[in-house]
């Protein structure tokens, strides 16, 4: 807390007699609590309590199809590990995470470097780059689904026109191809966010550093490795974690492109089907808890960073 704030706090509350109701209400603490309470209530009702209920119910058998909610211990979790559908959905999810995160980081860094080096037109190119991120993910997925259309789609059309394939292909039938194509839609949408995060970091690097490196005869690649990357490592960490969390929770793209198809179904799709189609609530909750724990472990880095940046206030 800064000195100024101490002074202000004293000014605002120091000489107020605590028992006087009107002054107590006008004091900082009461106003602060009054402003925070509705938010706490809302977040408790919609996030904290539901998370606790999810955790609790995942150890019970909860289904609208069956009466009673008996305690079943780790049964839901044990079933999960031997359920071929869940295992398949996890494999697909890990595939999305690894491919999407590496593509987003590589393309995001490339885009950020390009934008940072531009002397004119940066504003307009940046607006074009950010557009896919701003559009509704579902609409993006539908547009791409039309691009991948086996009969009249743009992808086949372009490949045929440039003679790269002899006849139109059905893209979403083969698992490997389908997973890559779903990932591509996700990358199209999420890469801009990485580019913006990295661009913001690049702009804080003083130009003199590069000039000095050039005088010393360092190549551009060496400058990138020795100056740029270390100085934007924080932003790289943030980009990495946000990409990872969103990739773990991929749903819209897979759902629109292939509906419930098992070859592309991510874990969130499996949860949706388990809970809202098979109505096995507690089994779906056990899966949700697992996804949350994996996401949190992976994002621990991000949270730590937030603390590091804010604990001196």
């Amino acid at each position: 807390m800064s000195n100024n704030e101490v002074v202000m706090t004293i000014m605002a509350t120091g000489d107020a007699p605590r028992r006087n109701w009107r002054q107590l209400v006008s004091s900082d603490a009461s106003l602060g609590i009054a402003l925070a309470l509705p938010v706490i209530a809302l977040m408790a009702a919609f996030v904290f309590v539901p998370v606790l209920i999810t955790a609790w119910d995942s150890f019970h058998r909860v289904s609208p199809m069956m009466p009673g909610e008996p305690f079943v211990g780790f049964k839901n979790y044990v079933t999960m590990f031997s359920d071929p559908n869940v295992r398949n959905a996890w494999w697909n999810t890990w595939f999305y995470v690894v491919l999407a995160v590496s593509m987003q980081l590589a393309l995001g860094l490339g885009t950020a470097l390009l934008l940072n080096g531009m002397r004119s037109g940066r504003r307009w190119l940046l607006a074009a780059v950010i557009l896919p991120w701003a559009l509704p993910p579902v609409v993006n997925a539908m547009v791409w689904s039309w691009i991948y259309n086996p009969h009249y789609g743009l992808l086949n059309g372009l490949l045929l026109k440039f003679g790269l394939i002899d006849q139109a292909r059905v893209w979403m039938n083969d698992q490997g191809t389908a997973l890559v194509l779903v990932t591509l839609v996700h990358v199209w949408r999420m890469m801009p966010l990485n580019a913006v995060i990295l661009l913001a970091a690049l702009q804080t690097i003083p130009r003199e550093l590069y000039e000095a490196a050039e005088v010393d005869g360092a190549s551009r690649f060496r400058s990138l490795r020795m100056i740029t990357l270390p100085l934007i490592s924080g932003a790289l960490g943030i980009a990495l974690t946000q990409s990872t969390i969103t990739a773990f929770n991929i749903f819209d793209e897979a759902w629109i492109l292939a509906k419930a198809s098992a070859i592309t179904r991510p874990i969130q799709g499996q949860i949706y089907m388990t809970a809202f189609q098979d109505l096995k609530f507690s089994y779906g909750m056990a899966m949700s808890i697992t996804v949350m724990l994996v996401s949190i472990v992976v994002s621990a880095f991000y949270i730590r960073r937030i603390y590091r940046e804010t604990r001196f206030d």
Partner: peptide
Amino acid sequence: TLAVPGYTVLIPLYRM
């Protein structure tokens, strides 16, 4: 809660 995937709470939220 930014780190909690929104989907985690969908089921209890639905019942509520």
